[in-house]
Amino acid sequence: MPNATRVRQPSDTAADAAFVRAHTQVQPVPFVPEVRLHMAEDAIALWETTETARGEIGMPPPFWAFAWAGGVGVARYVLDHPELVAGRTVLDLAAGSGLVGVAAALRGASSVRAAEIDAYAVTAIGINAELNGVRISAAVEDLLDGDGGPAEVVLAGDVFYERAMAARFLPFLERARARGAEVVVGDPGRRYLPRERFTALAAYDVPVVADLEDAARKTTTVWRLAG
């Protein structure tokens, strides 16, 4: 699940890296054991710690410290269907931990670009890419007014959980599809996904962090945006 409310400019990269490492543990991702990530155990505690470290109240949750169901579904699909990304340029949009981008790189993407608006997330993506032995170009940037070019494949996990988010993401994804990109998203039944615009590729029963989802598992569908 991404954060897309406002861009948070890069801070002290070394300090951010130390923060990420200090407050997470390296673990294999449930349902995607081929990938290991720096992940946290307690979302609320980390959220409060992040606000204290930044000296700012009202920060978004630390999306980068967890493997959200939508991203897990896309990563599983990419790992099982390498033809989607092999030899192609990939954009991991609102990348969070970088899970989806790591999966694409592991399956032979020619390059992977990850976009996030949280400096902690960008730092975590770099750390997680190194942990998995892959390269990802990550930056703090809001791309939603563009079309994702020149990426040949645009991947996004769990971006339709809020009305305002959906209102920005859908036009972006449609512009990417209109210029010829393959667009694939993961969604665990969020309210604002316009299902009539997508074709289902696969569905998985994904284990999730119960404190974040009020459930132990979520049925997650991987969708392709129709042309």
Rank of each mutant, 00 (worst) to 15 (best):
V153D: 05
I136P: 09
G157V: 11
V90M: 07
Q27L: 13
P171G: 05
V159M: 12
G71H: 03
D42S: 07
G148M: 11
V222Q: 02
E162H: 12
A139S: 15
A202K: 09
P188F: 04
D42R: 10
Y192P: 10
P2F: 00
A69M: 05
G146A: 13
G58Y: 12
V90P: 04
V112E: 06
H23R: 12
A94T: 08
I127K: 04
R197P: 01
V134G: 09
R197A: 08
M1K: 03
P171W: 08
T123W: 10
P30A: 07
V72F: 07
N132W: 01
P150T: 00
W68M: 10
D118N: 13
R113F: 12
A94S: 12
A115W: 05
L173S: 02
L46M: 03
G71P: 04
S110P: 00
A17Q: 14
G157W: 13
G186K: 05
G98E: 06
A129L: 02
G148E: 07
I44P: 00
R224Y: 03
A176Y: 04
A215P: 09
G70N: 02
V7P: 02
L155G: 09
A181M: 10
D145T: 14
S110G: 01
D12R: 06
L212S: 08
P30C: 08
E130K: 09
V222H: 03
E56H: 06
A22Q: 08
L99C: 05
L37V: 11
P194M: 11
A210Q: 12
M165H: 13
M1A: 11
V154Q: 05
A119G: 03
V154A: 08
A105C: 10
T50D: 08
S111I: 02
H38N: 15
R197C: 01
A86F: 02
D118H: 06
E51G: 14
D16F: 02
P30S: 05
P2G: 03
E83H: 06
E83F: 07
V159N: 01
A67T: 06
D42K: 02
L37M: 11
D12W: 04
D205H: 13
E116H: 01
P2I: 01
P10Q: 10
A210G: 00
A15F: 09
M39L: 15
A215Y: 09
V100I: 15
L144I: 07
Y120N: 06
G148A: 10
A14H: 05
D145A: 15
V159R: 00
Y204D: 07
V154S: 10
P82N: 08
A114I: 03
L84T: 12
D118P: 03
V85A: 13
V185Q: 10
I125D: 05
E130S: 12
R195S: 11
